[in-house]
Design a protein around this nucleic acid. Sequence first.
RNA 1: GGGGAGGUGGCCGAGCGGUUGAAGGCGCUCGCCUGCUAAGCGAGUAUGGAGGUAAUGCCUCCAUCGAGGGUUCGAAUCCCUCCCUCUCCGCCA
Length: 436
Amino acid sequence: MIDIRIIRENPEEFRRRIATKGVDAPVDVILQKNEQRRALITEVERIKAERNEGSKQVARTRDATERNALIAEMKGLGDKISALDDQVRQVDEALNDLLLGIPNLPDEDVPVGPDETANVVTSEGGPEREFSFTPRPHWELAEELGIIDFERGVKVAGTRGYVLRGDGAKLQRALIQWMLDVHTTRHGYSEIEPPLQVLSEMLVGTGNLPKFADTLFHDAEEDKWLIPTAEVPITNLYRDEILPGELLPIYHVAATPCFRREQISAGRDVRGIKRVYQFHKVEMVKFVRPDKSDEELKRLMSEALYVVDRLGLKYHVLDLSTGDMTFGSAHTFDIETWAPGSNEWLEISSCSNFRDFQARRANLKFRPEGGGRPQFLNTLNGSGLALPRVMIAIIENYQREDGTIQIPVALRPYFDGRDTIGKQPVFGPSAHIADV
RNA sequence: GGGGAGGUGGCCGAGCGGUUGAAGGCGCUCGCCUGCUAAGCGAGUAUGGAGGUAAUGCCUCCAUCGAGGGUUCGAAUCCCUCCCUCUCCGCCA
């Protein structure tokens, strides 16, 4: 939620900056509603003060006639009050709806542009892989090896379904385990196992609702939503609380399934597991004091990049343009990794600073050390990393000419030191069960 | 799902129609005192909103005793609905 004071202080400046996100904010209506709201509140509170004073008088008045006159007078005020309270509620609601629909302001140093074409590559790294053969896409390799079963996945879950099997499932599990270990031991995160179904207020808190309901899975009977990312339950973990300042920063990490009801256009990204309705992701969330969020964003990126680096993947970092950033973000960096078989860059992490945008929506506050008024904290989050994309990158980058996959060194401890994923037996025990 | 009990400030806990935004205690903060890692004394100690003011400081006002409605001149206190917690029963991974 945008702080309405920003709009009030300089409406034109606000209009200009929000326009870079491709949004035409109803600034005039907002200001008018706000004006109306304040006028109504001033008025109704004046009358309430009068009534409160009058009611106290009633209690003190002994004379019955005088008393009845007073009561009659106060009765009249009561009607006015409920009428005005009604109006305040309506204006409040209207104003709130308007404000909830306004995205966060981009930081001043975000590249300005209409869409992804304006994104700026800020750094790149990782090994350049040479193949003595033509690298193949993951859907071919994975299917041949029997580590991803697309056909049965679709049979069971419908379009876009997939099943990880044998070493495929194990590879994902190893990645999750290893990433969690990295973030909890090396980067100071504490691990969370959050609910995967949440109340709608939580999604309002992170900015997914009310605008993006059509991208979410929803149980209408229970008003429960499946999370599109662990960001949602974790960001809302301390909602309506005032955290002691000395607790900050708080770093949380979680590995959860993510459910996305994306409208995937036919004919695009149809092969493989790049775009699916359900996937796992390791997510990092930070709660920090406002003056620290810039440096925390850098740190968040370096934490995600550490994982990419240890997996030996080629990557580049994109500073997303104003037009390509998500609704709630003030600044976002995407990490993309090269997939030589699919022949494209894959987004494997998105690291964002939300500043106080989510904190206002979810009412996340902290009390500065040494007392003082509670203030909104800042939230950041980033993938560390998204599993299907990492799986694609590993399968395609570590493929050998014979169609087997080399296991990245960092993951070998989770494979009992094994260095190869070979063809899986479709039925029966894992080929390597004897190793255990 | 059915029955019973209950939800009050950071915590415990009074209050059950009228100077109660809320006694008392604990905790915490500041000060005083004390020759000692204690005790005592005093003061302070919620959040949001509106207005005033140069001011995120100060002042005034309003709201909030699980949430929302209702009754009343006036509600933490009475009524209704919902939510949550505990508990007994049923069901169940």
